[in-house]
Design a protein around this nucleic acid. Structure first.
Lengths: 153, 153
DNA sequence: GAAGATTTGTTGAAACTTCAATCACTCTGT
DNA sequence: ACAGAGTGATTGAAGTTTCAACAAATCTTC
């Protein structure tokens, strides 16, 4: 069929509310992290994933996957983080192609400070303004979206 | 209090599901629009807003507001859209500082084609994978977020 | 009605992301 | 053991976004 199935009025409202809310929230969080700690959201995400990995270290490809970034982008960003002394790169024992990114002590210390503020902001502008049942629904909804998108890639 | 109120396990899961799902979806939609119609999401959003305005025309500042973009970014992007012949700029009668952006016929035609595909993709990866009640909750949730963020800016 | 403050939109440079090409290493099948 | 295919990561260039500075027009207030 070439005829598109348009969204009904309610679906359209919900979709647009999501777009506007998510763009504005992302914007706010970005500015917040940048102004208080000099980190972009993408950089923050990288530090978080590293901090949760065993030995605070991950191979680039895994890190890219966890942080939902392209490998190229990750290379550039990790290079910048390395310059700032927040992350160190080392070779991977087993696979000589592999590169490990590791969170430095300085990186961990910065992350601890940044995470406090970040969580507070997430709470203030996301968690605390959403009805608890709606929040659960958001979790389910985007879990399903992530799964669906993963299937096609 | 200096002690941060951390998110509980369920809140953290929901927040992370949202982040991952939304990033991956945005990525997919971006690639889809770009590969099929040569438009970024930001450009698409601009065309949509113009198409809905009276006379398909808006002042730059209003357009920036509707499209959730900075004025500077909008200036650059509209410049590119103008090069492609999709948008035309003209001066604003009343206020001589003002500039109107107007959707050209060519822009409108492209948008019609792009919108069909875009809506189909939104349906396939968002609307259709979310339980209808959850979708309503998503709408409420992000409506509340947008309102909360708007208060602070 | 003029000085000062504010608003509008643009600009160029710096920072960041994407894209395609590349190099080095590993895996597969014979 | 080797050729060829595939994987891991980086690179430079091109494209996009952010940031700060600016010019022009309007608003305020005395």
């Amino acid at each position: 069929m070439t005829e598109p199935r348009w969204l009904d009025a309610a679906q359209q409202r919900d979709w647009r509310a999501y777009i506007e809310g998510s763009v504005r929230l992302a914007d706010l969080l970005d500015r917040d992290l940048k102004s208080k700690h000099g980190l972009s959201t993408a950089e923050y995400e990288i530090l978080v994933r590293l901090s949760e990995a065993p030995d605070r270290r991950l191979r680039m490809a895994e890190l890219a996957e966890f942080a939902s970034q392209s490998r190229s982008r990750l290379s550039h960003t990790v290079a910048r983080l390395e310059c700032k002394g927040l992350v160190a790169r080392g070779t991977c024992g087993a696979d000589k192609r592999g590169v490990n990114a590791e969170l430095t002590d300085e990186g961990f210390a910065l992350l601890e400070r940044a995470a406090r503020d970040h969580v507070a902001t997430v709470r203030e502008f996301f968690i605390d303004v959403i009805d608890p049942d709606d929040l659960k629904a958001v979790g389910r909804a985007f879990g399903a979206v992530a799964e669906r998108v993963a299937k096609v890639r």
